[in-house]
């Protein structure tokens, strides 16, 4: 199906890539259908685009990129609400806030979006851990990650916004994992 979006124009979305919320994100309860847009830029930021409202999209990122030891612990009832038995079959993203002073950007670690990779059922879950911040500043760590791991990754930066493609969360995760693997043994092209 074709979906009109304010930021990316018209995009083709396959049914299997549509992510469904039983209850929407906090404050956006009416919007229940989303998909992930990967603009392919070097920031590693993806977008959680609403299907119901062309203008609503949230910048998201995999928290492991800037905080490798971020761990999510869900209650059995929370796992059950997503038809999950564990987090192996799930994708985890944090929502980013990017203010005008971009170095002040922050990630919401307290309430990540959890997606069941098989059923594409999703929820923004408020975690019990009281140490997790709603506004976790992470610009420095993102910059560190990008300059360490992706500075020579021309394949990624070549992609222009006009070629915006829709990827499954699972694929998005693979990209990041591949990056890690490459760097661990040094990029073969480098």
């Amino acid at each position: 199906m074709k979906v009109n979006t304010t930021r990316f124009g018209e995009l083709e979305v396959e049914k299997k890539d549509i992510i469904t919320f039983k209850e929407g994100l906090l404050g956006f309860e009416k919007l229940t259908k989303f998909f992930i847009v990967d603009p392919g830029d070097q920031t590693l930021i993806l977008w959680f685009q609403s299907i119901d409202d062309a203008a609503t999209a949230f910048p998201i990122i995999e928290p492991k990129i800037f905080l490798p030891d971020y761990s999510v612990r869900l209650l059995p009832a929370e796992l059950a609400s997503l038809d999950l038995e564990g987090l192996n079959d799930a994708s985890i993203y944090t929502i980013l806030t990017i203010p005008e002073v971009v170095t002040e950007m922050s990630a919401n670690l307290k309430a990540p979006i959890i997606i069941n990779n098989k059923t594409k059922l999703a929820r923004q879950i408020v975690l019990q851990d009281s140490k997790l911040e709603v506004k976790h500043k992470m610009y420095v760590n993102l910059k560190k990650y990008i300059s360490t791991f992706t500075s020579d990754d021309t394949a990624r930066t070549k992609n222009k916004l006009s070629e915006a493609t829709v990827v499954e969360p699972a694929e998005a995760q693979n990209i990041a994992l591949d990056d890690n693997d490459n760097k661990a043994v040094k990029s073969p092209e480098a």
Partner: peptide, 10 residues
């Protein structure tokens, strides 16, 4: 706070 953060992020 989460609601405000979501709104700001969007």
């Amino acid at each position: 706070a989460i609601q405000d953060q979501n709104t700001e992020a969007s």
